[in-house]
Simulated scan of single mutants.
Amino acid sequence: MFATPAYAQTAAAGTTGGPQDLLIQFLPLIGLVVLFYFLMIRPQQRRMKQHKTMLAAIKRGDTVVLSSGMIGKIVRVEDKEVGIEVATGVTVKVVRGMIAEVRTRGEPAAANDAKA
Rank of each mutant, 00 (worst) to 15 (best):
E81F: 12
A13S: 13
K73T: 15
G89N: 11
A111G: 09
F2G: 06
A57G: 05
M48A: 12
V33P: 00
E81V: 13
V77L: 12
M54K: 04
V92F: 05
Q20P: 02
T88P: 11
A57P: 04
E107V: 03
A87K: 14
Q44L: 11
Q50R: 15
F2E: 03
T10Y: 01
R42K: 15
D62Q: 01
A3V: 05
S68I: 01
Q20C: 06
T63K: 07
L39A: 14
G69F: 02
M98Y: 14
G106P: 06
G69E: 10
I99C: 04
I71R: 08
D113F: 10
G97M: 02
P108D: 00
A13M: 05
V94A: 03
R46T: 10
D113S: 11
T16H: 08
R46V: 13
L22N: 05
L27N: 09
L27E: 12
T104G: 08
L55C: 03
Q45M: 11
A87W: 05
H51G: 11
V90T: 15
H51P: 09
I24M: 12
R76Y: 06
I84W: 00
I84A: 07
E81A: 07
M48D: 12
G61Q: 03
M1N: 10
G18E: 00
Q45R: 11
A3M: 11
T88F: 09
A114C: 03
E101V: 09
R60T: 14
V77K: 09
F2R: 06
G61I: 09
M70C: 07
A57I: 04
M40Q: 08
V95G: 10
Q25E: 12
S67C: 10
K52D: 13
A110L: 05
G97D: 14
A87G: 05
F36P: 00
L32C: 03
L35C: 02
V86F: 04
R105M: 08
R60E: 15
T63R: 15
M40D: 01
R47L: 10
V77R: 01
A8K: 06
R103A: 09
A12E: 11
V75L: 01
L23D: 11
